[in-house]
Simulated scan of single mutants.
Amino acid sequence: MTTALTTTPLTGDLVRGALELEPTPRGVLPQRLPARARAQGADPQLSMAASQPSGVRVALRTSATVLELDVLPTKRAYVGAPPRPDGTYDLLVDGRLVARGSVQGGSVLTVDPRAGTFEVSPGEPGTLRFDGLPPGAKDVEVWLPHDETTELVALRTDAPVAPLPDRGRRTWLHHGSSISQGSGAQSPSTTWPAVAALAAGVELVNVGLGGSALLDPFTARALRGTPADVVSVKVGINLVNADLMRRRALGPALHGFLDTVREGHPDAPLLLVTPLLCPIHEDTPGPAAFDEQALAEGRVRFRATGDPAERAQGRLTLRVVREELRRVHTQRAAEDPHLHLLDGLELYGEADAAELPLPDALHPDAATHRRVGERFAGLAFGPGGPFAARCPA
């Protein structure tokens, strides 16, 4: 006889890693920036990234052997680019990955990078089903797709559920770019921040925002208001590939961003991370653009379009950004003993690029995400790392 499934409301105590659950006509939409921040940054790219639930998971304690999740995904389609695969959901039981799934259909967001347009074609929800879960009480986490907007509609199980018990785990709040969001990773629990968080045994709140790690004041205020034990800020690549500012503006903007974060986390270890190696932007300013020849061949690849000679006029490259981040860190560290710096080249440098080149010239592949996550876990959370005392193993 088939056991009837019971529906449980999807409330904040069952959804971890989101800064806000936005009510919708069908359910709730996990957002990684609060409504006020999203209103102040009315940019379609930012809105898309904030609504993609990187690091967000439905987390519960249950004896259920069957779990169903109704969701309304919003797929992305880029004009002129190959079709994208469906988003991946990772099922972790007692911290171990046991299954993956995806949901077909849903809405479609069509992006035309050349025209700068974003158009949504509405769709219907689908159902993600995991059965054959091990019997007995267990911790269950469904990590939502890191790169696909996911509206949560309903949760059904064949046994009661409860929020995960408090085991005193520390919270790591991280902000970064599309690499931090997980672009190029195999699945949501294998983005580099997820790999690092799972290795270190900490709760992850990932505010990695594709194309939008731009030192925006509203993002700094969102970080300020989010509870955390340790905080990291990884900036640089978006400042270059968006060609957003010049060297004169970078230092003051970074100071202001860190000042705001510090207001909410005055004594927390705060780690400033410089950019990973990205050969096309090491010495060539942005903006970045699609490689038209690659698109014509059915491949996605990016190129830098700036003029290296204009570095003298303050155009940003990654080498310039690293210099400025080191300078700001040195200046602030004299008064802030809890501020630390991590050179992104220690996470992914020239030797790594020779072995594992960036497939599209901007984003790492799945193997590189794992390498970066493992290295970050060791350097930040390992013995002698800036997070080690606050987040003991």
Rank of each mutant, 00 (worst) to 15 (best):
V205Y: 01
R32S: 13
Y89V: 09
T149K: 12
E323F: 09
A249Y: 01
P383S: 11
V161K: 15
P193T: 00
G236N: 04
I280R: 01
G225K: 02
G298R: 05
L92W: 13
A294N: 04
L91V: 14
L270T: 10
G385L: 07
D147L: 15
P337N: 12
V56Q: 11
G306L: 12
A50Q: 14
A162E: 15
T274Y: 10
P53C: 03
L244D: 03
G184W: 11
P73T: 09
A197D: 03
D216A: 02
L325T: 07
L258W: 14
T150A: 08
H255D: 13
F118C: 05
V28L: 09
F387T: 09
H175K: 01
S232W: 05
A228I: 03
G286R: 11
E203F: 00
V195L: 05
P83H: 09
P188H: 07
L173G: 05
D94C: 00
L250N: 00
R57A: 10
V261I: 13
S189M: 06
R299K: 14
A388K: 08
A196Y: 05
A367M: 02
A115W: 14
D307F: 06
S180A: 15
P392I: 11
A377V: 12
H363T: 12
P134S: 12
L272I: 07
W143A: 13
A296D: 06
E374P: 03
D307I: 01
H338P: 00
R61Q: 14
F381C: 07
A99N: 08
A333D: 06
D229P: 02
A154T: 04
K234I: 01
A361E: 11
S180V: 15
D90N: 04
L69F: 09
G208S: 06
P269G: 07
P252T: 02
E141Q: 15
L69C: 08
R38W: 15
G298S: 10
D216Q: 01
A35G: 07
R170S: 05
R332S: 12
E355L: 15
V111I: 14
L215H: 10
P113N: 09
A304R: 06
L60W: 14
V111T: 03
E292K: 06
V233K: 05
A39H: 12
A59K: 14
P44M: 05
D43A: 04
R76S: 06
R303S: 01
V28I: 10
V372Q: 04
P85Y: 12
E22D: 07
